[in-house]
Amino acid sequence: MKNQIDLQRFEIRFSGLGGQGIITLGRVMGAGLALGHGYNVTQTQSYGPEARGGSSRCDLVISTERISFPKAENLDLLVALSQEACNTYYPYLKQGGVLVLESDLVAQPPTNHYLALPFTRMAKDKIGVPQAMNTIVLGALSRLLPFARQTVMRKSMEEALPAKIRAVNVKAFNLGFREARKHFGETPAAWEAMAAEAEKLEKKAKPAAQKKK
């Protein structure tokens, strides 16, 4: 399929507290990558019996091939939105994997190789809705992941949400994307090959689009 780079089991884990919207985040991102980009994606979840508090976790496996085992084991990207989640899942991050943290909620990062933004504070101060925190993360990741395209992810998010909260979430998504561009810097070293491939595809796609006009 076009607009797709070759991916072999790229594994993402979102983790944090129940009520932070972690499973919704995984679902929206999974739908974007599966339906918008055409990858094979499995999204699995694990949560405690509590409605709020407790721990929550959501795994995404993304691949161009058929995915047999649906859970994540060797993480390429770990998003930890609480200190406990960070402590629990950091050991599963693979060599060169990327760690994204909520800088206010994770006071002790386990390593100096991490990317962090105060997602919850941003949601409260700049969007006015603390619940929009997960959408800010989605926006930031759309910038960070070389194979995710901003427009496709945003469209997928809009389709997944009810009309009355759509505008607020688009605002949050764009904020996350902007902040990530400002603070996350260049593509992480381990993903450079992927980014190069994605760029090549983009260049190839563009002249074709112009010809059509």
């Binding site: 739908a31 994606v41 699995t44």
Partner: peptide, 9 residues
């Protein structure tokens, strides 16, 4: 539970 709660295309 895994099959029931796994999302896939």
């Amino acid at each position: 539970e895994i099959t029931a709660h796994t999302r896939e295309k």
